[in-house]
């Protein structure tokens, strides 16, 4: 446990000691701000809800989340520090878990910064806090799954940029494009896209509906990719 925490702390330190962490947060908040202006949720007469803003959020997160996790494992390979990690008394699972938790915490901090809109909304209007909670829970669950996938992408290569693209493109294709594709196809493809349709699942949350199959889907996806990352890291030893 202590060594998992050690990895997590170091990873957070690396994110906050390098420009990348701040660039990611700034980029995220900038895009958010633009969306807020564009959707005009603060215009007079509009309903006091962030639903319109956060509808776009999964798209943004496909780019942002892999940027958080891209260097986590790839950089260890590139700089050779993986050697001192893998010869220290901690299991590959503990190492991956520590890194994953750091990514989740960073994501939560970043997401927490958008609470300012909710606070403003509460100051000038009367938002439904229950619905807002469901919205944030949905986003956090997306963060859990995307971060796990991002860490997985990072374990596949020793190049950060490649890790970022490997994280971003499949997330975009599966999680977001499937939202549009799901109505166009039939049979098993439809069943598949229905399952991986992140935006569709998130819509339920954004309506204030916490659906158990959604919760299970995101947590299970996160667990699957953490597991796969451990397997990739382990398999690297045998090469």
């Amino acid at each position: 446990m202590r060594n998992t925490m050690a990895i997590m702390q170091r990873e957070l330190l690396a994110l906050f000691c390098s420009p990348i962490g701040y660039i990611v947060i700034a980029g995220f908040l900038l895009i958010n701000g633009v969306i807020v202006l564009w959707t005009g949720v603060f215009s007079p007469g509009k309903a006091a809800t962030l639903r319109d803003v956060f509808f776009w959020m999964p798209w943004v997160l496909t780019v942002i989340v892999p940027a958080i996790s891209m260097r986590m494992i790839s950089e260890e390979y590139r700089s050779g520090t993986i050697e001192s990690l893998m010869t220290a008394p901690l299991s590959d699972f503990q190492m991956v878990l520590g890194k994953y938790l750091a990514g989740v915490i960073f994501f939560a901090i970043m997401l927490g910064a958008t609470l300012v809109y909710l606070v403003l909304m509460a100051a000038y209007g009367n938002p439904d806090l229950g619905a807002a909670f469901a919205l944030y829970l949905g986003l956090f669950l997306i963060g859990l799954a995307f971060t796990a996938y991002g860490v997985f992408a990072s374990s596949l290569t020793s190049n950060q940029v490649v890790a970022w693209i490997l994280g971003w493109v499949p997330l975009l294709l599966f999680a977001c494009v499937s939202y549009f594709v799901v109505g166009q196809v039939e049979g098993w493809l439809r069943a598949l896209f229905q399952q991986v349709n992140v935006i569709g699942r998130f819509e339920a949350f954004s309506r204030g509906l916490v659906r158990i199959d959604g919760v299970v889907f995101f947590i299970a996806t996160a667990a699957l990719f953490v597991f796969l990352t451990v397997k990739v890291v382990e398999s690297r030893r045998w090469r």
């Binding site: 690396a14 700089s79 520090t81 050697e83």
Partner: peptide
């Protein structure tokens, strides 16, 4: 002590 002495430069 690995040959390349891998360390984290930011720490």
């Amino acid at each position: 002590l690995p040959e390349s002495v891998p360390l984290y430069p930011e720490m």
